[in-house]
Design a protein around this nucleic acid. Structure first.
Length: 482
RNA sequence: GCACCCAUCGACUAGUGGUUAGGUCGCCACUCUUUCAAGGUGGUAGCACGGGUUCGAAUCCCGUUGGGUGUACCA
């Protein structure tokens, strides 16, 4: 059975790149009928951010991505927070020491810093020098034992052979070869007793029976270390798939400095979760080139890791905007009206009838890019017109217009509530225009001005139908008589 | 510096030896029209470069160039 995991570290708000990594894990798991696990990698006590885990959970829920196991739902392989598994890592580090594939080192941060400076000056790659630093090999058995017993700060490092090479395999990128002499003796267990990512990740993936490791390309350089670790334990390794990076318009790894990178930023800006998910899915993967809109279910059935691209993809907000518009026009209006609710409150429109709100959404959804825009775009649907477009008035309001509008109002009044529908209103307006010997447009523009105050909006007759008979007539007369 | 990864229109991509190099966003034009959108139609624009291999290379190989990631007691 396929088991995959998404393993974020709770150091901030969920990043859109992480959303995509999580999504690919989810799509792959669902496609294969396997399990998708959430594991919190909180082994860095310094970078821990309060509330980050909560944000990760909320954003995935918002995006419609569910985990089968994780700290919030439990599971048979827990605990799912690495900070609750430290004893496990210590035991495994110890096991490696006994096997001779890891060793103790006692260097201080300053000593390591000086080592790197020396190496830099000598023009060689910075890498832990096992033969000159303070570790169990240079210190000898007796001194090592003495330091351990005296409680001196120590770390456990991975023993990487100085010769030979390590071969790795990746579903997206194929085979690679790394010369062992270029691979660092990575710290596995820190002096605070916590594991580094490298140790915790391998131990947990093994214990949680992960079959496929799907993660960002930034991990590719440490893949050989991980492979060596699996060998050091004597474990089979999972299959790896390293995803291309999400890039800023400057082609750099998308980071906080590039503006909105948190999923919550997009939620607050009014993007629909379906659109954001669809959009990031297509950044690096493409099921079929003949269309762009794929609901989650369809992505699941079509997902294929082997079709994931190798090159990084620029996060192009323009296309996201377009896609949001596509979903905006497809999603049920009740759902959109519910999404609009928080923005209505922000705009000061409280207590609006949900059914009426849905009608307004339906009326204007083709003309806007975000539900968030509706309270501003169609403010006149939720309260009196606040101000009238002067320029628009100057262009379409002629000396004879007021009289024409009042006459029109009288004629429209002959339509009762039941007949206050788009087609009937349309008919009355056109008949009136004909009797006046002018084009319908000559009437419609002043009507739009009187009723909405704006020069742009939905179809005039549809707008009047939704606004209602009484309010429409009142506004028509009020402006003509002002 | 060193290690590794990558390279098709401005952007996302299809393409796995034979295509007029296709689609989508954006942009431009036209159309529809009561405005603005949406829609429809058309257009703009690309295989980084140089060598091979081959009857034939966007596709395979090598190199160059360019870009990216990593290089922590962070993940």
């Amino acid at each position: 059975m396929v088991r995959v995991r998404f393993a974020p570290s709770p150091t901030g708000m969920l990043h859109v790149g992480s959303l995509r990594s999580g999504l690919y894990n989810y799509l792959f798991a669902r496609h294969m009928g396997g399990a998708c696990i959430l594991r919190i990698e909180d082994t860095d006590q310094v970078r821990f951010v309060e509330g980050a885990e909560q944000n990760i959970l909320e954003m995935f829920a918002w995006a419609g991505i569910e985990f089968d196991e994780g700290p919030h739902v439990g599971g048979a392989y827990g605990p799912y927070r690495q900070s609750e598994r430290t004893a496990i890592y210590r035991e495994h580090a110890q096991f490696l020491i006994e096997r001779g594939t890891a060793y103790y080192a006692f260097d201080t941060a300053e000593e390591l810093e000086r080592m790197r400076e020396r190496q830099q000056q000598a023009g060689i790659a910075p890498k832990y020098d096992r033969s000159s630093m303070r570790n169990q090999f240079t210190l000898g058995e007796e001194e090592t034992k003495r330091l351990l017993e005296s409680g001196t700060d120590r770390v456990i490092r991975l023993f990487v052979p100085l010769t030979g090479e390590t071969r790795t395999s990746d579903i997206v990128r194929g085979e690679s070869v790394f010369a062992n002499r270029t691979i660092d003796d990575q710290i596995l267990l820190k002096s605070d007793g916590f594991p580094t990512y490298h140790l915790a990740n391998i131990v947990d993936d093994h214990l949680m029976e992960i079959t496929h490791v799907i993660r960002g390309e930034e991990w590719l350089p440490s893949l050989p270390k991980h492979v060596i670790l699996y060998d050091a334990f004597g474990w089979d390794r999972p299959q790896f798939a390293h995803l291309p990076l999400l890039l800023s318009p400057e082609r750099k790894k998308l980071s906080k400095r590039d503006g909105d990178v948190a999923v919550s930023d997009y939620k607050e800006k009014g993007f629909l979760p379906e659109a954001l998910v669809n959009f990031v899915a297509l950044l690096g993967w493409n099921p079929t080139a003949d269309r762009e809109i794929f609901p989650m279910e369809e992505m699941i059935s079509m997902f294929d890791l082997a079709k994931v691209n190798k090159a990084g993809a620029i996060f192009d907000i323009e296309k996201l905007n377009w896609m949001n518009g596509m979903y905006l026009r497809e999603l049920p209006v009740e759902r959109l009206a519910a999404d609009m609710q928080p923005f209505m409150e922000q705009a000061g429109f409280n207590g609006v009838d949900p059914a009426y709100a849905a009608k307004v959404v339906n009326l204007v959804k083709e003309r806007i890019h975000f539900v968030k825009d509706i309270p501003l775009f169609a403010d006149y649907m939720f309260g009196p017109v606040k101000n009238f477009d002067e320029e628009y008035a100057a262009k379409h309001w002629k000396p004879e217009t007021a009289g024409q509008m009042l006459e029109l109002a009288d004629r429209l009044e002959t339509l009762d509530e039941a007949n206050w529908i788009t087609e009937k209103i349309d008919g009355v307006v056109r008949a009136h225009a004909e009797s006046l010997g002018i084009s319908a447009g000559k009437l419609i523009h002043p009507m739009r001005l009187s009723i909405t105050g704006k020069r742009v909006g939905a179809g005039m007759f549809e707008t009047m139908e939704v606004l209602g008979r009484t309010e429409s007539l009142t506004r028509l007369r009020a402006y003509a008589q002002r």
